[in-house]
Computed example of a mutant assay.
Amino acid sequence: MSEQVIHSKSINDLLSGMGLEKPTHPLITIIDTKRLSYGEDTVGMRFSSDLYCIALKDSSCGIDYGRNHYDFDEGVLMFTAPEQIITVNKPQKLNQVKGWMLYFHPDLIRKTALGEKMDSYNFFNYEVYEALHLSQQEQNTLTQIVELIKSEIKERIDNHSQQVLVSNIELLLNYSVRFYERQFNTRSASNLDIVSKVEVLLKDYYKNNELIDKGPPTIHYLADKCNLSPSYLSDLLAKETGRSAKDHINDFLVEKAKNLLLSSTDSISGIAYTLGFNYPHYFGRLFKQKTGKTPQEYRQLN
């Protein structure tokens, strides 16, 4: 695999690199995937950009997003954020893959309500195997929105263009949130297995004295053990339990702290160190945040 990353700073750079005509709008474009082809000489090449991308594919697209590869069935929606790496893993012929790719530059949504809440759309940080699988009706809904965007780009750029484009992108993302919630619901049984696994991982971490050796477990640690991205794991836990991955970790630490406060005579500092806190006042702050009492107050009242 090539170590070099070919980077596109703009929509124009992106289209030029793909051998496509210049854009009709400088900050947004829609690419018909049937128009894309990759030869043997492209396999292994890595690409990144300063752009957001939302892509709907209906079959294996020959591209790795991030560190993982997936041969997609019909109707899979993928999201990539600026600076993420895309790798071509096999050749692709013209008209081989049906779908669309919507690229837009952060400047399009800067200083808008959407720009301020882009970080809340966690699926831009999901791994490729956590992509959104769509029904035909869901595909049609999103494609209709993309057609509206395409029409706006092609036919008019005026004082209303940015608002219309941003509103449609936001609508597309909000539908994606709804469809991801449906996917979480339909996978509820397997999700509950992951919830149980997280609880076991936390207990084992404590039993094996890893709190003392390594400090409190991180979201990345739990996600890696579950073979998920941190963002996806946190969203899954929030959907199933109403608590994020960070909440699960902190609640576990506080429950262990309660047991130690009542079952031992160790100092508050000693208990803090046992639970992996290098600084006791961080432990005290977390404990009070979760219980409404300081560790000393909790011990005296119980």
Rank of each mutant, 00 (worst) to 15 (best):
L228Q: 00
D247N: 15
K246A: 11
L275S: 02
Y206K: 15
T241I: 01
R156H: 10
L262S: 11
S269T: 15
N208I: 11
L262Q: 09
L165D: 02
A223C: 06
L237M: 06
K246F: 06
I194M: 08
K239V: 07
V177A: 02
C226I: 03
Y279A: 11
Q183C: 06
G215K: 09
D266A: 10
R182D: 15
H220M: 12
K256L: 02
K239W: 13
G242L: 02
N209Q: 12
K256H: 05
Y180K: 13
S229Y: 14
S231W: 14
R178C: 08
E210L: 15
L262N: 09
F179N: 07
Y205Q: 10
T241F: 00
V166F: 04
R156D: 02
G242I: 03
H248N: 09
S264L: 05
N174L: 07
R156T: 13
F184L: 13
Q163W: 00
E240Q: 12
F184G: 01
F252I: 01
V164I: 15
H248I: 08
N168V: 03
S176E: 02
L222V: 02
F252Y: 14
I219G: 14
G276E: 04
Y175P: 04
N174T: 08
C226P: 04
N259E: 15
E210W: 13
K214L: 10
Y205P: 08
S176A: 13
N159E: 13
N191C: 08
A245K: 02
K239G: 09
S176P: 05
S269C: 01
A257G: 05
V200D: 14
K258L: 06
L237W: 01
H248W: 14
I212K: 14
D224G: 09
I219P: 07
R187H: 15
E255A: 03
S244P: 04
K197P: 09
L172T: 15
I249S: 05
E240F: 01
S229W: 04
A245N: 00
L262G: 04
S188A: 08
I271M: 02
